[in-house]
């Protein structure tokens, strides 16, 4: 099933979904060497490495722009990020790190998608596909 999206950081990725329901700026709470979420959230203890990371959005992040770049450099970055409404610092961080980032403005998508689902993020043509 395909969902239209707004392209924020261009690229293409496939992978397994890791879904957070929380509106938090947890990127500051990800260990840059392991990619494991250390901040209190529903993803605590899980690794974002190689995942399609899905969360509603940021909460005015105070973390630096280079967080995602550090994850990428250490080989533990997510393959792509899907937000409902993203936040500029995360967006710019994604561009610099070369990680595709899109916004999906569709409740159905967020209701359907579960951790472990297979996803295709096409941030060139503007769609996210739920493969299951």
């Amino acid at each position: 099933m395909k969902f239209k999206c707004k392209i924020v950081s261009r690229g293409y990725a496939e992978g397994e979904a890791l879904v957070s329901r929380e509106h938090i700026s947890f990127l500051g709470g990800v260990d840059k060497d392991t990619g494991v979420v250390v901040a209190d959230s529903d993803l605590k203890g899980q690794s974002v490495a190689g995942k399609i990371l899905i969360f509603p959005g940021g909460k005015g992040s105070t973390v630096g722009t280079y967080v995602l770049l550090n994850l990428k450099k250490n080989g533990v970055a997510p393959n792509a990020i899907v937000n409902r409404k993203t936040e500029p610092i995360i967006a710019v961080g994604a561009v610099i790190a070369g990680i595709p980032l899109v916004e999906v403005n569709d409740e159905v998508f967020f209701e359907m998608v579960k951790t472990g689902d297979r996803l295709r993020v096409d941030a060139k043509n503007g769609y996210v596909e739920l493969i299951k």
């Binding site: 707004k6 392209i7 924020v8 950081s9 261009r10 409404k85 993203t86 936040e87 500029p88 967006a91 710019v92 994604a94 561009v95 610099i96 980032l101 916004e103």
Partner: peptide
């Protein structure tokens, strides 16, 4: 340019 577009789109 990608950075400017990312900031522009999110705002």
């Amino acid at each position: 340019m990608e950075i400017l577009v990312a900031v522009g789109e999110t705002n």
